[in-house]
Write a protein that binds this DNA or RNA. Structure first.
Length: 458
RNA sequence: GGCGCGGUAGCAAAGCGGUUAUGCAGAGGACUGCAAAUCCUUCCAGGGCGGUUCGACUCCGCCCCGCGCCUCCA
C-alpha cells in the first residue's frame, strides 16, 4: 500500500487514486532561459523515479511536466543575446532534453509549453473574473484577489495576515492587496503580447500551470509535484486559480522535493552557486549522478560535493561488480521474493529510495556469495525500476569518469596487460608489478582471475 | 517578525520504543606470486538538559545550532 507525504496535510497518507488504476500527475518543470543545474536534475530524477514506481505498481500514469517558455527572464535574456525568444527557448529545451536523457529520465506523457496554452489561460482568467476573483487594476494588469479566496495559504501554512506583505516585497499600489498576484500582464513596448479581452499582454507565471493541468489532466487530479521553493507562492496561487475558477478540489496529493545545496546553502540561480548538469557530467558519469540523487530521500536536503559524487561512484561500482561476476537471469523480477518485497516496502513508504537502494546492496552481497543468477536477476530488475544498473557492467566499470575524461585508451591498456602477462609467464614479477603500478597511476586497476586479467577504471 | 524543516558514527544516509540499516573510508583475517575484487570478523552513532517508560537515537517539553519559505527560483 503506497503512502505519500502530502505537503498540504503535512503527513504521510495512503495513496488512493481518483480513478482506480490510474494516476494523473503534474510536475512544474523548467523555465528555459539557461542550462539546467543540479537542482533541476533533482526534480527530473525524483519525479521520474516516482513515475516509474507508480507504473511498476501497475498504475496507468499520465505524467505532465510543463515548460515555461515565456517570462521576464526569458525576454531579458533573449534581448541580451540578440536572439528571438523562440531561438532561445528552443535551444534550452533541446539542452534540457539532452540532460534529462543522460540522467535516465523517461519522457513525460506530455510536455506542454506555456505559449501553446494562452487561449486556455484567457478562458481561466475570464472564469475567475466572472467568479469575482479577478480584477483589472489601474496599471492594466489583471490580478487575482487573494482576500476573496477563502482557502488562501492552506498549502504553505501561511495566513494572509501573517505574510506581512511589504516587508520584503515592494508594495505595488495598483494591487488591491499587496499579495494579489498577476494573471495577465499588460503589454509593454518591445515585448511579446497576445490579444485578450483585457487588452494586449502576456500571461503571469502561475496561470499557465492551472491552464495546462486542467486541459491535460482535468480540473481535479491526483498528484502535483515540484521543488520546495514552489510551494509558496506558486503552488498556493495555482490552487487559488484552479479552485477559484472550477469550484472543485484541484489536487489530492502535493509533493515537494528538497533542495540541492552547496556548502549547506541552497543551490540557486540567484545565489549563483549552481553547477549545471552538463558541467557535472564532464567529471562524472550520468548514472553516478542519478544514483547520488536517489541515495537521499527526496524530501531531504542533498549536499553536493565532488567527494560525495566520488563516494556514489564507488558505491555504484559495487553493484555493477556483482553483476559483472554473475550473469543475471533474464526471467524478470519475482515480486514475491524477499528482497523484492523489501524493495517494495521501501518504495511504498513515500518513495524511500535510500532504503530501496540498501536492499540492492544486500542483494549484491548475496549475489557475490551465492553466484545465484536468479538473485542477480532480482538485483538488475529491481534496480531497473529506478533506472539504474541497466548498462553492461564492464561498460560501466571501464567507462570514462565523465565526458571530459582523457584516460588511456582500451587498446593501450590491453597492450600493457599483454606485456604484463608475458612478464608473469617469464616469472618476471618485478616487471609485472611495474606495469600494474604504471596503469594504476593512470587510473586503471587490474584484476587477475583464473580466466585472465580484466581491468576497470579506479 | 511569521511559518516550517533538520541536527545519527571519519564521510554520506535510512528505519525503528528493546534485536547488524546500507554505502564509502579504517582495522584484522581468508583468497592472491603481489594486488584488485570478493567473502568473513571488527572499530566508530544519535546536539544539550529534563520528562514519559521496565527500557528512548526513536515519544513529549525546553534550550542550543543549522537550513528553508515569506521576492524570481526545482
Amino acid at each position: 500500500m503506497l503512502k505519500i507525504y502530502n505537503s498540504i496535510a503535512r503527513e504521510k497518507q495512503t495513496f488512493t487514486p481518483i480513478e482506480a488504476g490510474k494516476v494523473k500527475m503534474y510536475v512544474c518543470g523548467m523555465t528555459v532561459y539557461d542550462f539546467c543545474h543540479l537542482g533541476h536534475a533533482r526534480v527530473l530524477v525524483v519525479f521520474d523515479a516516482v513515475q516509474r514506481w507508480l507504473r511498476a505498481s501497475g498504475l496507468d500514469v499520465t505524467y505532465v511536466r510543463n515548460i515555461t517558455d515565456i517570462d521576464d527572464k526569458i525576454i531579458r535574456r533573449a534581448v541580451e543575446n540578440g536572439e528571438t525568444i523562440g531561438q532561445l527557448t528552443d535551444r534550452f529545451i533541446a539542452a534540457m532534453d539532452e540532460d534529462a536523457t543522460a540522467l535516465g529520465v523517461q519522457k513525460p506523457t506530455h510536455e506542454p509549453r506555456a505559449t501553446d496554452y494562452v487561449p486556455q489561460m484567457l478562458g481561466l482568467i475570464g472564469q475567475l473574473e466572472a467568479n469575482g476573483l479577478a480584477y483589472k487594476a489601474a496599471d492594466g494588469d489583471v490580478n487575482f484577489s487573494v482576500r476573496k479566496f477563502p482557502g488562501y495559504g492552506r498549502l504553505s501554512g501561511k495566513s494572509l495576515d501573517d505574510l506581512r506583505a511589504g516587508e520584503r516585497v515592494e508594495v505595488d499600489s495598483a494591487k488591491q492587496d499587496p499579495l494579489d498576484f498577476v494573471l495577465w500582464k499588460h503589454a509593454k513596448a518591445g515585448e511579446p503580447a497576445w490579444e485578450s479581452p483585457w487588452g494586449a499582454g502576456r500571461p503571469g507565471w502561475h496561470i499557465e500551470c492551472s491552464a495546462m493541468s486542467s486541459d491535460l489532466l482535468g480540473q481535479h487530479f491526483d498528484i502535483h509535484g515540484g521543488g520546495q521553493d514552489l510551494q509558496f507562492p506558486h503552488h498556493e496561487n495555482e490552487i487559488a486559480q484552479s479552485e477559484g475558477a472550477h469550484g472543485c478540489t484541484f489536487v489530492n496529493y502535493w509533493m515537494h522535493n528538497g533542495f540541492v545545496r552547496v556548502d549547506d546553502e541552497k543551490m540557486s540561480k540567484s545565489l549563483g552557486n549552481f553547477f549545471t548538469i552538463r558541467d557535472v557530467l564532464k567529471k562524472y558519469d550520468a548514472e553516478v549522478v542519478r544514483f547520488f540523487i536517489l541515495r537521499a530521500h527526496y524530501r531531504s536536503p542533498l549536499n553536493y560535493s565532488d567527494a560525495h559524487l566520488d563516494d556514489a561512484r564507488q558505491a555504484l561500482s559495487r553493484l555493477y561488480t556483482a553483476l559483472k561476476a554473475v550473469v543475471p537471469d533474464a526471467a524478470g523480477v519475482d515480486r514475491e521474493e524477499a528482497h523484492a518485497q523489501g524493495f517494495q516496502a521501501a518504495m511504498d513508504d513515500d518513495f524511500n529510495t535510500p532504503e530501496a537502494l540498501a536492499v540492492l546492496f544486500e542483494l549484491a552481497n548475496e549475489v557475490n556469495r551465492s553466484k545465484d543468477a536468479r538473485l542477480a536477476g532480482q538485483l538488475k530488475g529491481l534496480a531497473g525500476i529506478l533506472g539504474l544498473l541497466e548498462r553492461d557492467p564492464v561498460a560501466f566499470l571501464q567507462g570514462a569518469a565523465g565526458s571530459d575524461d582523457e584516460g588511456l585508451s582500451p587498446a593501450v591498456i590491453e597492450e600493457r596487460i599483454a606485456a604484463r602477462a608475458a612478464a608473469k609467464k617469464a616469472k618476471d614479477f618485478a616487471e609485472a608489478d611495474r606495469l600494474r603500478a604504471e596503469l594504476l597511476a593512470a587510473g586503471i586497476v587490474l584484476e587477475d582471475s583464473a580466466q585472465g586479467t580484466t581491468w576497470r577504471r579506479a
